[in-house]
């Protein structure tokens, strides 16, 4: 889906803090949405949890920074980190160029997926939520 130029892939789960989560078999890939990236404008620095760290749903798990601003990233789901995106150390701008593919932040093994996923939004619900934000 798309709203006012912001891309919202149909097959992802979303939070109201503008993170996305993608189920890939037994693991979950996590990143920030096109809207979050464009609002930051130019991502220049990323701080994400390291492998084997446990993140907790809705708790801060890192930061994404532009020249001007710092944005907290909240874990969309609880899980243990099994992979991090080393490319972002040298090319944080991948978050702007490709927020859903090359600009991913971490991959986790979820700890409580079946319960926690109920609090996430699907693409349609996130699009509706963005629409209300953009009207303000």
């Amino acid at each position: 889906m798309e709203i006012q130029g912001y891309q919202i892939p149909d097959d992802l789960m979303y939070t109201e803090e503008h993170e996305w989560a993608k189920q890939e078999g037994k693991t979950i890939r996590i990143g920030i949405t096109d809207y979050a990236a464009k609002t930051l404008n130019d991502v220049v620095y990323v701080s994400a949890p390291k492998v084997s760290v446990t993140v907790e749903q809705s708790k801060p798990m890192g930061t994404v920074e532009s020249i001007k601003a710092v944005s907290e990233v909240y874990a969309p789901l609880s899980g243990r980190v099994v992979e991090t995106n080393g490319a972002l150390d040298f090319h944080p701008e991948l978050i702007n160029k490709s927020p859903y593919v090359e600009g991913w932040l971490i991959v986790v093994e979820p700890l409580n997926l079946s319960t926690e996923r109920k609090s996430l939004l699907d693409a349609k619900a996130y699009t509706a939520y963005l629409e209300t934000l953009l009207q303000k």
Binding site: N41, D42, V44, S66, I67, K68, E93, N96
Partner: peptide, 11 residues
Amino acid sequence: PLWYTTTMAEH
């Protein structure tokens, strides 16, 4: 104006 394209490109 905060930025027109990106702060990085303008800088």
